[in-house]
């Protein structure tokens, strides 16, 4: 990124190849919409170019990327109407596929549907922290830097989020 900042825009491709998947995953879990998330990924990379001079090189690139992604997401949430459409159920069906016995498949589908509903019902802060820790598999230390919190505060928020999710999930089951 330091090279990109200093005018070598060719290196942008390298960053894209390395980070577009985790970034897409984060945005997909946050929005529940694949198409919109692709747009948002594009938006984040555009901001990287536009604001490349703000990258100091002191912090990690990934932290800076999540900062940008959260801003893009905040703009998106502000603009978009609260959408009724969340996870596309078709995605689950595709993913789970055939092979497994029908009743087991049904059970897992049911479980995932409940989980996604529970995740939707979480407060945005709790949803975000679970995505960062569970799906993005970031260390608390890095999450703390992304969210401008102390590590202890991250830990507490993760527990509360997990407890809330568990309650919501069990209610659905």
């Amino acid at each position: 990124m330091t090279q990109v900042r200093d005018g070598n825009l060719e290196k942008m491709g390298l960053l894209f190849e390395r980070y577009h998947r985790p970034l897409f995953g984060f945005l997909y879990h946050m929005t529940g919409q694949a198409d919109a998330s692709e747009d948002l990924v594009q938006n984040v990379f555009y901001r990287m170019l536009k604001y490349r001079h703000t990258f100091t090189g002191e912090g990690e690139f990934r932290t800076w990327m999540y900062h940008l992604a959260r801003n893009v997401l905040a703009d998106h949430v502000r603009k978009a109407k609260p959408s009724a459409r969340h996870y596309d159920l078709a995605d689950f069906v595709d993913r789970i596929g055939g092979g497994a016995p029908a009743d087991e498949r049904m059970q897992k589908e049911q479980e995932l549907a409940s989980l996604h509903d529970a995740l939707r019902k979480l407060s945005p802060d709790h949803r975000e922290i679970l995505i960062l820790s569970r799906f993005q598999e970031l260390k608390y230390e890095e999450i703390a830097r992304i969210l401008n919190l102390t590590e202890g505060a991250v830990k507490v928020r993760v527990h509360r989020a997990m407890n809330e999710l568990k309650t919501l999930f069990l209610k659905r089951q």
């Binding site: 491709g13 894209f16 997909y28 879990h29 692709e38 594009q42 997990m162």
Partner: peptide
Amino acid sequence: RLWQAMGRMPVPEPTEKMRVRFYAMVETYK
């Protein structure tokens, strides 16, 4: 159980269209 179920939550593959759009965007930007 919950943790593992979360891990099974599917993330669709981003389409190839996204990569094409990205490189087009970089070129346009340049």
